[in-house]
Design a protein around this nucleic acid. Structure first.
Length: 869
DNA sequence: AAGTATACTTAGGAACGTGGGG
DNA sequence: CCCCACGTTCCTAAGTATACTT
């Protein structure tokens, strides 16, 4: 169905964008009913009426806000049951939409819907019809844009935009080294690609295996050509991007050595205790007990769900192996002996001798050599995760219901290998057979298996630095760059749609707003046995609270159960919309975007721009922000260090945008405390200086009252402690000096100083300590010889500076402590921005990218210094 | 049209290595 | 030289997106 419009040439599609924007496939039903039923005529249920009224003229904020304001995100999970609000539930959309816009739809229920459906079908057959239907709804919808930046503005610019866009593409994109980049490729050959895609689809719908044989012939022909080309082009695939390549075919030849299985379990015979007594375990049971034992005292092992899940599986396996006594109570289990054993092992590993470490390295190298590489189209490429995941306890994040479950050992018979037909099938481990061997050249994986806990599929892929990954990385960023060129009108489009009459469109545009401006993830639906986390489309009522006039507070758990907690000013209309979505039968646990699914959103986005999906906005905004910030922050003629600081700040900006967080390290509080102490020490010195001034010049009390003010955060008890420490340090220093001096004397054959002399020196410290105690008591600090007010003032100034600098470092550290820069650097920021920047500012690349990253991004390293995202 | 399966990217934490100060 | 704070690499979970199935 979505294929319809796609077949038209790109230019045409661009002209249509606006229309699509207003009314896409998704809402054909509504558009039908809509245009048939003028707004005025609609009767709507009283409740709804209020909603609409409210919405159109924006009063009664209080009512709304107070009614919908709920606290922090709740743990309650009503989700599956309460997915749909009552008003949308019944006869589905038509009713729901009707509710919102008036009752039009309730006038036009099923029968009409069917008609609309047929319409839709016809539509599918020809793009002309698409135009028609879109056109009608467009004329209907057009007035909407008037209050916006004038309807013509949003209508005409579109076509114009498309045109101008093209030129700009041609001229602006001066990417010398990759002239045939994804974007241009897609433009030029979009039709062709599509057709090929269709053929493919047909093939697939037949029998896969047959298809493969069919295609293999084609493949072979291609292969010959390709290999030739590759030989000439060396490994730099990005230099000779082929134009008309079929994207779905990933390779023509693939050879590898299979996967590495973790070694069999070696029993250690350590006995856990049950009910206080050591018990003998079958190796299989011992292994599982060990999994838990090794985790003892970690957060996982303390987590009740983890314990429960583990214990269930543990009991099962214990029973299977006739463990006696029968294990029935988790509380009676004592895994500490195992814990100690593994602690000890860890210790041993740490204390390995050089030779042992060398041997281990050697062993790893052997595996790497065998499994770590493969041959893709004759090219040697690195394999990523060639190790089959070892058994263990599933470490689900956040409140994953299955966390702690036993992840079983994977057998060769469960593993499917993917390689080319002419490649030798690697030998399965002795006594074992592979699950299956396939030759699917449309897939990039080398091996796959099913994991038992969540029944999810695992894969062995090529490494990040491989050509396949590099190509798709390039493609990803090219799509993001394509979005950059379209973003303006896309934004205008969804801003206009925020006021659409159809609830669905409103939700969709509001979601687009959030995804674009806040870099939220799409938010696919999730199942019951996963952690309760959300993204944009799956936000629930309790995750959003509103504050007049236009502040939105977001507080929810996102991917990996990372908390997203931000308050942002949003567009007024967005504010109103959210308020509207939060309204009425809605309660906690209900979806905020109750009619929107990520699939629908993405379908719409595809219509706006080829390759556009929700996640592209994140990539685009991350890269764009980075380039922007980098430009602003980089000092034109600063040192490399200063430039790096700017780079990292820009990086951090992006990380914050994307909400990339990391756990605060355990030493953090202590480190912060130390820095705070440093600040306090400065303050202490400042205080002393001030008092010295007063001793020197008591008259200043009136002139400079600030001299009397105590330093903040400096408590008497702290001062006393601090001074004690100072004295202690002084003593240490003296002792150390004493010893050093004596050694020197010995070497010079002089007479050493006596212990008595040392004692005398130390006594001076005691005297000083007494002085300080007195100063504490009286609050008077006598001026040391030679001190002047001027000197003290200078000191104070210096101290103020230091305090400020240290405080800054503190803030910096504090913020950085929970912000992870790596994720955005690796996944979101177009590496060509960094490469160009390094070039331009003469910063060595390895200050920015580690070896692995340089490898991963090698395709991006050849850009000019004026390359632009 | 929803549910399910698949394939791939994105993610944070643990393990590992390193380098620079005591 | 050792320790430890730190950055890098490894690991695999948790997302997105789309194709397939019912």
């Amino acid at each position: 169905m979505s294929s319809d419009s796609e077949d038209m040439p790109l230019a045409r599609r661009k002209e249509q964008k606006r229309a699509n924007n207003i009314s896409t496939d998704d809402d054909k039903i509504d558009s039908g009913s809509d245009s048939d039923t003028p707004l005025g005529k609609r009767k709507r249920p009283p409740v709804r009426k209020r909603v609409l009224d409210d919405d159109d003229d924006d009063n009664d904020d209080n009512q709304t806000l107070s009614s919908s304001d709920s606290g922090a995100p709740s743990k309650k999970r009503t989700r599956p049951a309460a997915k749909r609000k009552s008003y949308k539930d019944d006869s589905s959309e038509s009713d729901g939409e009707g509710d919102y816009q008036g009752s039009s739809d309730s006038d036009v229920p099923l029968a009409k819907k069917k008609a609309a459906d047929t319409k839709a079908k016809t539509k599918t057959n020809g793009s002309a019809k698409t135009n028609g239907s879109n056109g009608s709804s467009r004329s209907k919808a057009a007035p909407k844009y008037k209050d916006d930046s004038s309807s013509s503005d949003s209508d005409a610019p579109l076509a114009k935009k498309a045109a101008s866009k093209k030129t700009s593409t041609a001229t602006k994109t001066k990417v010398k080294s990759e002239p045939v980049s994804a974007s241009s490729k897609s433009k030029q050959s979009s039709t062709a690609t599509k057709k090929r895609g269709k053929d493919e689809a047909d093939d697939k719908s037949k029998v896969k295996k047959i298809k493969k044989e069919d295609e293999d012939d084609k493949g072979k022909i291609k292969k010959v050509k390709k290999e030739e080309e590759d030989e000439e082009g060396t490994d730099a695939w990005w230099l000779n991007q082929k134009e008309n390549e079929d994207e779905s075919v990933k390779w023509t030849s693939l050879k590898h050595n299979g996967v590495y299985f973790p070694p069999d379990y070696v029993p250690h015979g350590i006995k856990m205790k049950y009910d206080g007594k050591p018990i003998t375990l079958d190796p299989a049971v011992e292994e599982v007990a060990g999994f838990f034992g090794a985790l003892l005292f970690t957060e996982h092992a303390e987590n009740p769900t983890f314990q429960e899940n583990f214990f269930k599986d543990f009991q099962k396996i214990a029973k299977k192996h006739k463990t006696s006594p029968e294990i029935t109570s988790f509380k009676k289990c004592d895994f500490t002996p195992m814990y100690e054993y593994y602690q000890n092992e860890r210790e041993k590993r740490k204390n390995m001798t050089k030779e042992q470490k060398e041997a281990a390295k050697e062993e790893k190298a052997i595996l790497d050599e065998k499994y770590g590489v493969c041959y893709l189209d004759g090219r040697k490429e690195k394999v990523g995760n060639y190790r089959i995941e070892p058994p263990g306890l599933f470490r689900g994040r956040g409140k994953h219901p299955k966390t702690g479950c036993l992840k079983k050992r994977v057998l060769p018979s469960q593993v499917t290998l993917n390689l080319s037909k002419d490649a030798p099938v690697p030998l399965a481990p002795a006594g074992h057979k592979w699950g299956a061997i396939v030759h699917d050249d449309t897939k990039t994986w080398l091996a796959t298996w099913k994991e038992n806990v969540n029944d999810s599929t695992k894969y062995v892929f090529l490494a990040a630095g491989s050509s396949l990954k590099g190509q798709s990385d390039l493609k990803k960023f090219e799509t993001a760059r394509a979005l950059k060129k379209e973003i303006e009108w896309i934004r205008r489009g969804y801003m206009a749609d925020l006021k659409d009459k159809k609830m669905f469109i409103r939700q969709r545009s509001t979601a687009m707003y959030l995804i674009d401006r806040l870099a939220l993830r799409a938010g696919n639906e999730k199942g019951e046995d996963e952690a309760d986390t959300v993204g944009c489309c799956s936000l629930r009522f309790e995750h959003v609270t509103l504050e007049k006039p236009n502040i939105m507070h977001l507080d929810f758990l996102g991917k990996d159960s990372i908390r997203y907690q931000k308050s942002v000013e949003v567009d007024d209309q967005v504010f109103k919309n959210i308020r509207l979505f939060k309204r009425e039968p809605a309660q906690e646990g209900d979806d905020l975007f109750d009619r929107l699914k990520t699939s629908e959103l993405n379908k719409h986005l595809q219509n706006l721009m080829k390759g556009l999906t929700a996640k592209v906005f994140r990539t685009y905004n991350a890269s764009f922000t980075f380039q922007d910030q980098l430009e602003k922050l980089t000092p034109k003629d600063g040192s490399v260090a200063e430039k790096l600081l700017a780079y990292n700040r820009a990086n951090r900006e992006v990380a914050i945008l994307c909400n990339h967080q990391r756990a605060v390290s355990k030493g953090h509080a202590g480190q912060i405390g130390k820095i705070e102490d440093k600040v306090r020490a400065y303050k202490y010195q400042k205080m002393k200086q001030k008092k010295i001034i007063l001793s020197l010049e008591p008259k200043l009390k009136k002139k400079r009252p600030e001299l009397l003010e105590p330093e903040s955060d400096l408590e008497d008890s702290w001062i006393e402690e601090h001074e004690e420490q100072l004295m202690e340090k002084e003593r240490e220093r003296i002792k150390a000096k004493f010893e050093k001096d004596n050694e020197k004397r010995k070497a010079n054959k002089e007479k050493p100083m006596t212990a008595g002399e040392l004692k005398d020196m130390l006594k001076e410290v005691d005297v000083r300590a007494k002085e300080l105690a007195k100063e504490r008591k009286t609050g008077v600090v006598p001026a040391p010889r030679g001190s002047t007010v001027e000197k003290c003032n200078a000191q104070i100034l210096k101290l103020d500076e230091r305090i400020a600098a240290t405080r800054l470092a503190l803030t910096d550290k504090e913020e950085n402590k929970q912000t992870a820069l790596g994720t955005s650097k690796i996944n979101y920021i177009d590496p060509r921005i960094s490469a160009a920047w390094c070039e331009k500012h003469k910063v060595p690349l390895d200050k920015i990218f580690t070896k692995t990253l340089r490898d991963k991004f090698k395709w991006a390293m050849t850009v000019d210094d004026d390359w632009e995202f």
